[in-house]
Nucleic acid binder design. Structure first.
Lengths: 196, 196
DNA sequence: ACTTCTCTCTACCAATTGGTAGAGGATCGT
DNA sequence: ACGATCCTCTACCAATTGGTAGAGAGAAGT
């Protein structure tokens, strides 16, 4: 067997929650998609909410892993920023539901936001420290690192995930389009961050 | 009567759709909130989907109005960008559900995205032309105006609406926090856009 | 006085929701 | 051969969903 039932459920749930959203996803639809019965799902997870939390946990650690891999390389300055942007984009192309889920969890009024931030808080801290260090070393324009991090997050995640907005703007969402967006974004960020 | 029933329904629906989302909003809950019966809602609107579309239409024209008011001032260069950012932030503080609704509509797989973009396409075009003109005049760093617009959109909407992410990052979401975020964002954008 | 129109209501309904109870078939160690 | 464990199933269920049908109240026009 290539993949356990439990894993298949989590995969399908990630896709569904990440695109349709939590409320719009029914256990019956999920089961039908998997060719199993709803009760099989409820054998592995006690409730719909529990599935969601499991999906969030798995997605969060996947995300964290990507960041930690890059952080471990120890590159400095804007090259490191660029490398991270590239990794996020690769993730957005390969597993778009993953970032979709983040959007779902970070929606106002969503439960399990704390679950997500429990995972991500360490990378946020690490990123803030990184920015501060680079600013102090003069490899990056000085500003409030926390606010800068928020701007960076919004810009990168937005450009990587706002496919519908891009469609509305008339921007291609092909793979080639993704590369072009990434390049333009990196240029944008370099311009914003390069020291005077 | 201060406000017609129809208007009250639209107001409540905007709030609900903009925070809870379409699927998570029930007509019964909406009616209870308004102190009326669900059938009264269905007297004014033929279906839940129709309410959503009406809400989107109204929200879109509110948004467009804000942009057109600012565009009419005919300010140029980065001062105009700054003025628009300020307006978006004012909107985000006063009517946060409005931007929440935009996020709901622009979610992948959402219906009525076309309805929204029918309203907003003219301002996108206008904004693209504006950026191109300012670049040509040397008042702004040159780049692909369409991609730049996407970056700007993502950054501004993100910083204005990602309250949960900010909370997770430990950033205050008070009014004072909003002003600080706005200032920092403007600094960020100016750095990215200022000509060499 | 009578009709007409506008609005809100009660009374239902079929379909779908998340979830419970428990049967039955494998596969395993003994 | 036998119980135990693991897994998936059928059979239900109460609650909620969006939506229909139509009664009745009130105001307005004639």
């Amino acid at each position: 067997m290539a993949e356990s039932t439990r894993e298949r459920i989590l995969d399908a749930a990630l896709r569904a929650f990440g695109t349709e959203g939590f409320a719009a996803t029914s256990l019956d639809a999920l089961a039908t998609e998997l060719g199993i019965r709803k009760q099989t799902i409820l054998y592995y997870f006690p409730s719909k909410q529990a599935i969601f939390e499991a999906v969030v946990d798995r997605a969060a650690s996947d995300l964290v892993k990507v960041f930690e891999e890059q952080a471990a390389r120890g590159i400095g300055g804007l090259d490191q920023v660029e490398a991270i942007v590239k990794r996020v984009f690769r993730l957005a192309v390969r597993r778009p539901q993953l970032l979709g889920l983040i959007r779902e969890v970070t929606r106002p009024g969503s439960l399990s936001i704390d679950r997500l931030s429990a995972h991500t808080a360490p990378i946020f801290d690490r990123a803030r420290d990184f920015l501060q260090r680079e600013m102090d070393a003069g490899r990056m324009k000085s500003s409030d690192p926390e606010m800068l991090l928020l701007s960076l997050y919004s810009t990168v995640v937005g450009v990587a995930t706002e496919l519908e907005v891009q469609r509305a703007m008339g921007i291609s969402d092909s793979l080639r389009g993704a590369v072009a967006r990434r390049q333009e974004l990196i240029r944008f960020l370099r311009a914003a961050l390069e020291p005077a």
